[in-house]
Amino acid sequence: MSVEALKLDNVKKNFAGTEIIRGLNLSVAQDERHAVIGPNGAGKSTAYNLITGRYQVSSGKVFLKGEDITNLQPYEVKRKGLSRSFQITNIFPKMSVFENVRCSLLWAMGYKYSFWHMVGNQSKLNNDAEEIIEELNLKDRRNTLAGVLSYAEQRALEIGITIAGGSEVILLDEPTAGMSVSETEYIVGLIRKVTEGKTLLVVEHDMGVVFDLADRISVLVYGEIIATGTPTEVKENQAVQEAYLGAAMEEH
C-alpha cells in the first residue's frame, strides 16, 4: 500500500485554553480528491492553518507523503510540495496577473533568493507562467493589476497561484464561496483541470460542488471528524445527517 499523501494524527489545537481542534485524524490518499465539510466554526480553516504552518499545533503530528511536517514554517511546507489557497482572497494586489503567477513559480523552479538571474530572460519560467494564465482563462487580463480584477477572476488567480510550481498536494479553502452559478461552474471546471493527477483537499460549503468533485468526504464538527467515506456513504450516515447535512441538503 502506498503511503498517504497527507495524514493528520490526533492533531489538537488550543486557543487561550479552549480546544478548537480536539484530536483530528485524517488521511488523504495519493491522487484522491477529498472534501472536508462541516458547519461554520467547525475548525475547517483552522485545520488548514495547522497543516500549512500558519498556526502551531498544540499536539499531534502532520505527515506529508510520510514525512513529518508538523510545525514547519509555511514556506517550508510549500517547498515540500503542499500548496494552499485561502478563503479570503489572498493575492498580490498591486502586481499584474502575470507577475502574480510568475512569482508563485520562482521557488519551485529553483531560483531561490537569486540576484544574478534576470527573470525576463528565463524563457521556461515565462512560458510556464503564460501557460498557467491561459489555463486560468485570464489571458486578456495578463497585464491587469490583480487588485482590480473581478471577484471570480481573483478567485481563479488565487487557484493559479496555488497550483503554480506543481505542488503535488493542493489544499483549497472554499474556492466557490460567494460566486454565482455560472462562476461556480467555471471554477469547478478549472479545479478539475488543474488538479488532474494531484492530491486535492477541499473545504467547501456548496454541497453540489462537494458531491460533484470529491472521491471521499470527511465531516468535521466541533473540531472532530465524525465520519469519512464516499459521497453516498456520507449522505446516508445518520450522525452526519443529524449534525450537519440534513439542513444543508434540504437547500439543494
Binding site: 494552499r84 502586481m95 512569482c103 520562482l106 533568493y113 540576484f115 544574478w116
Partner: peptide, 28 residues
Amino acid sequence: YLFTQTPVGKMANAVRDNPERAEFVGYS
C-alpha cells in the same frame, strides 16, 4: 534597476504587497 528584475527583487515586491502569501509560495 537590474536588482528589481531578479527573482529576489520580484519577491521583494511580492513581500511588500502581501508578505503572508509570499510565504505560501515558498519564500521566507
